[in-house]
């Protein structure tokens, strides 16, 4: 449903996003996890056609966002970091305007507006001016405008930022409900958020993709493992089984392959240095060992920076009492 290939965005000399690639399947809730300044907003703005990429390509709902922007935009709903509300319009008026510009046929407009207001639970503020809404309602009206034209793809930039714990839970529930009809990408810098709402996560830091995986796998990888990169010339054989047999190795995944050389990501138990055994095994099999190094980016470091970002939110005590703060535990390990 969404395909991003080698996306790069430079602002003058600042590189906000570099060589980002990922795929999102239909119906998935896909998380974008990264500390502030990681490039989440930039990537989302490219996907929604708000800004062009410097390099690379993005296909949303089957349309290239750069070559066929109108078609792609028709199928995309977008909630920017700050909900784009017109302060002097009432909620109904606002949704009416958005429905028009998003191309909802006039015969269906009234019914669509009623449906999204019910869905996002904003019926009770229907006639209130947008400027008079509380933060929680602003966010929900923002969600309502994003789904008004029933888009295939929903892109939500930090949909829970600045909400109180109760509102956060409600918003997460709402997003999960929406997942049935839409493919969703949401960004966050809060770790528990992805483990609770997303099926798959891309972690980005300083504009680079660090990992793409399910939240469970990521947590597991973080909890008790270290990752090595091993490049082997195994004469065309698959070395993953053999490498997996080394004591202390928990997981082996092929990461790249060219000219008969194969690169593997080898995960091992925390505190168990498997480098010597790995080298011995490769040499012992008569293969060529071309590279053996710890993976450049430490997930743990990034996770730490993620959760330290959570402290500045208002009402820290309430935050701490929020249910299942498993991400925070992880971070303190």
């Amino acid at each position: 449903m969404i395909e991003v290939q080698h996306l790069t965005k430079r602002y003058g000399r600042v590189t906000a996003v570099e060589d980002v690639s990922f795929r999102v399947e239909r119906g998935e809730i896909f998380g974008f996890l990264g500390p502030n300044g990681a490039g989440k907003t930039t990537t989302m703005r490219i996907l929604t056609g708000f800004i062009p990429a410097t390099e690379g390509k993005a296909i949303v709902a089957g349309f290239d966002v750069f070559d066929q922007p109108i078609e792609a935009k028709r199928r995309t709903g977008y909630l920017p970091e700050t909900p784009p509300l017109y302060p002097d319009m009432s909620v109904v008026e606002y949704l009416g305007f958005v429905a028009k510009v998003k191309g909802v046929p006039s015969a269906e407009r009234r019914q669509r507006i009623a449906a999204v207001m019910e869905r996002t639970r904003i019926d009770d503020v229907a006639t209130r001016l947008c400027s008079k809404l509380s933060k929680g309602y602003r966010q929900r009206v923002g969600l309502a405008q994003a789904i008004i034209h029933n888009p295939d793809v929903l892109i939500l930039d930090e949909p829970t930022a600045g909400l109180d714990p109760k509102q956060i839970i409600e918003t997460r529930e709402l997003i999960k409900e929406l997942a049935g009809d839409h493919t969703i990408i949401l960004s966050t810098h809060i770790l528990p958020e992805v483990s609770q709402t997303c099926q798959r996560v891309v972690i980005i830091n300083k504009g680079h993709v660090v990992a793409v995986d399910t939240p469970d796998n990521l947590t597991a990888r973080l909890r008790g493992s270290e990752t090595m990169y091993v490049q082997v010339d195994a004469n065309g054989l698959d070395a993953s089984g053999t490498l997996g047999g080394v004591a202390g190795v928990t997981r082996v995944a092929e990461s790249d392959r060219r000219d008969g050389l194969v690169g593997y990501e080898v995960e091992s138990e925390h505190g168990h240095d498997v480098r010597r055994d790995l080298a011995r095994t490769v040499i012992g099999n008569g293969w060529g060992l071309l590279e053996l190094r710890p993976m450049r980016m430490s997930l743990e470091e990034i996770f730490l920076s993620l959760t330290t970002e959570e402290t500045p939110t208002p009402a820290p005590t309430a935050e701490a009492s929020a249910p299942t703060p498993e991400g925070e535990e992880t971070a303190h390990e």
Binding site: F50, K73, P84, V98, V101
Partner: peptide, 14 residues
């Protein structure tokens, strides 16, 4: 200033 330009420019409008 208010960010509503993001709504306009991401809507299917030229």
């Amino acid at each position: 200033r208010s960010g509503t330009i993001e709504l306009l420019l991401t809507s299917p409008l030229t």
